[in-house]
């Protein structure tokens, strides 16, 4: 627990020292929020569609924040050449990932509060079903953690060469999961792929509050469980391989 605290402390210091990092929980989500809501307001659709877009934005941020943190934690260590020091301490890969999950969740809560607040004040938005909303966000958080574990593994193996890749994967997955549109707009084979992705079910749940989407709970739980196991095994395998190839203790 102390070691998780240590990583969080380090992360917080770096965040407040490099102020542009705060953009991630201020400017960028605001830009995403306003670019979409202003556009929707202009099109002036059914209020339910408006609501779907707002929960979609929140859901996307959930995946993003839960995914990105483990990657940035690792890259901070990598660029600043502190990785060998920290990995030579009793810190484990699990603790490092856990601290990233906690950091990501705290940032997400701030962002969700901000977006919800603005939506309520500016657009009289209402959460139709608090339970569905919370479960939907939780599912997307777990999906983000899964994606984070997978991309973290890739970054462990390919370091800076994998950054662009591992930053792009989650957005692609979210896009395929129908963040604020029905996946029926995709060709059939893409729909089949989408249905295998945990984020799809999270977004379905959020959309279902406003009458657009159906959730198959057994499939939701199954896809989460299967992907968690796959991601866990993959991350472990990557860590072992990185340790074998000398990517953990490299003093460049």
């Amino acid at each position: 627990m102390k070691r998780v605290k240590a990583e969080i402390y380090r992360n917080l210091v770096l965040m407040f020292r490099n102020k542009w990092r705060l953009f991630d929980i201020t400017i960028w989500p605001l830009i995403l929020f306003f670019s979409l809501t202003l556009f929707i307001q202009f099109v002036n659709p059914d209020p339910n569609i408006f609501a779907v877009v707002i929960v979609g934005i929140i859901g996307w941020r959930a995946v993003y924040h839960m995914q990105i943190e483990a990657n940035t934690t690792f890259m901070d260590h990598y660029w600043d050449k502190t990785l060998p020091h920290s990995m030579a301490s009793p810190l484990t890969l699990f603790e490092m990932t856990a601290s990233a999950v906690i950091m990501g969740f705290v940032k997400l809560v701030l962002v969700v509060c901000m977006i919800l607040g603005l939506s309520v004040i500016l657009y009289h938005f209402q959460i139709a079903n608090v339970a569905a909303f919370l479960i939907g966000i939780l599912v997307l958080c777990l999906a983000g953690i899964i994606l984070g574990m997978i991309t973290f593994g890739i970054v462990l193996l390919y370091n800076e060469h994998a950054i662009a890749f591992s930053w792009a994967i989650p957005d692609l997955v979210v896009l395929l999961s129908g963040a604020y549109y029905p996946i029926a707009i995709f060709p059939m084979w893409v729909q089949h792929i989408s249905a295998l992705l945990p984020p799809f079910w999270g977004f379905e749940l959020l959309k279902s509050m406003y009458g657009y989407g159906q959730v198959n709970f057994p499939l939701l739980i199954l896809s989460l469980a299967v992907w968690f196991i796959i991601a866990g095994i993959f991350l472990r395998w990557c860590y072992r391989k990185a340790k074998k190839d000398g990517r953990i203790g490299k003093f460049m």
Binding site: V13, L14, D80, T82, S89, P90
Partner: peptide, 22 residues
């Protein structure tokens, strides 16, 4: 050939490792 987070203060850097080593 290793490093220190450049934006951290000396005491912050040491506190981080003091926490890691409990």
């Amino acid at each position: 050939f290793s490093g220190v987070h450049p934006s951290m203060r000396v005491d912050e850097f040491l506190r981080y490792y003091a926490l890691l080593y409990d």
